[in-house]
């Protein structure tokens, strides 16, 4: 099927998801009340101050996690290598948890301290991944993944330690945040992360041809004229930006960056000029749907969205592992 047609089709489906999901939930929102911007109208208030921001943040988080995962999969030429599986998410989570523990609230240039701490944590773990991939040229991806598991354990222990020395309130805040969720009110969190996501997304869109070349293998990419270390550094930087921005607000939501790019690749093919766009659309809509499930499955209580993505992602990971053992390409 024509790739542009597929993109159009999925855009329409995503718009449909965005238009319908704010009406789904415990409180029924009559359609005519949403144009009433009077804050005394409870339905309008729920719609515009709670549901719409929540759905928007779920959408941009899903997009950012999906294209970050896509970039990692291309760089490492393996569907299992994503920021989450290589430990970048846990690094960011550690940074954010540390911020919660310190309890010293600050912001810089309008960016919250939690985002900055998450960014620092993501950078540290990305540096670890980067150094590991440099230690030996052609580090086998299996070894990279094991190293990611080790990095995950390492930061998880730190997070446990922070929880242990925190008081009950902070400890619960950290646990709840680690499960992932979009319980935002109003638009300030969106303003907080959107610059990170826009910059990262633009960088990755501009590098889509380089990503195509990287899937051919590093040697071939270099021989075609890719300045390898420069391109990889920029990609690492862009993914750290996006992943840490997202995680600082919504927590370490796993497996979106693995499932969405892989399914997108099956749908539209490996050409990253199209793939990146489908990931933005599909990743966003996917996470909005997961979040809607999290809101309605055991209503009035909520299942943390991280639990839902992990329940879907765990079996998916194992399926990929079995499938890719006899064919190691993406």
């Amino acid at each position: 099927m024509n790739k542009k047609f597929l993109l159009l089709l999925f855009s329409l489906l995503a718009l449909l998801v965005l238009a319908l999901t704010p009406f789904i939930g415990m409180e029924k929102i009559p359609f005519d009340t949403i144009l009433n911007f009077d804050s005394s109208n409870i339905h309008s208030d729920i719609f515009w101050r709670i549901r719409v921001p929540r759905i928007l943040i779920a959408f941009i988080s899903g997009s950012a996690l999906a294209i970050s995962g896509m970039a990692f999969q291309a760089m490492f030429r393996n569907a299992l290598a994503t920021p989450f599986t290589l430990g970048v998410s846990s690094g960011a989570a550690f940074g954010a948890a540390l911020y919660v523990k310190i309890g010293f609230i600050f912001s810089l240039l309008g960016i919250s301290g939690q985002t900055l701490f998450a960014f620092a944590g993501a950078l540290v773990s990305i540096m670890l991944v980067y150094i590991l991939s440099k230690v030996k040229k052609g580090f086998p991806v299996g070894t990279m993944l094991l190293a990611g598991v080790a990095i995950n354990f390492f930061f998880s222990s730190f997070i446990l330690f922070i929880q242990f020395i925190s008081d009950f309130t902070n400890s619960f805040r950290i646990i709840r945040w680690l499960m992932g969720g979009f319980e935002v009110i109003g638009y300030s969190d969106i303003y907080n992360v959107i610059p990170f996501i826009i910059i990262g997304t633009i960088i990755i869109i501009l590098l889509s041809t380089e990503l195509n070349l990287l899937t051919l293998g590093e040697d071939v990419a270099v021989s075609r004229g890719v300045s390898l270390s420069k391109v990889k550094n920029i990609l690492f930087f862009a993914t750290s930006l996006m992943v840490s921005g997202v995680i600082s607000v919504v927590g370490p939501i796993g497996f979106v960056g693995m499932m969405v790019p892989h399914i997108s690749r099956l749908i539209i093919g490996a050409d990253h000029r199209y793939l990146v766009l489908l990931n933005i659309i599909f990743g966003g809509a996917f996470l909005v749907l997961c979040d809607t499930l999290s809101r309605i499955l055991i209503a009035p209580a909520e299942i943390p969205v991280g639990v839902i993505t992990a329940l879907l992602g765990g079996p998916f990971f194992i399926w990929l592992l079995i499938k890719s053992s006899n064919n190691n390409s993406i």
Binding site: L216, G217, V220, S223, G225, V226, A270, D271
Partner: peptide
């Protein structure tokens, strides 16, 4: 610069078993 070098020199690697998800034309 790598790009300039690649515009003048091309390279055919040893046969490898990697599967590229592209058509020959792409």
């Amino acid at each position: 610069p790598q790009k300039k070098l690649a515009s003048q020199i091309s390279y055919v690697p040893q046969i490898n078993e990697t599967n590229f998800p592209f058509t020959a034309k792409e």
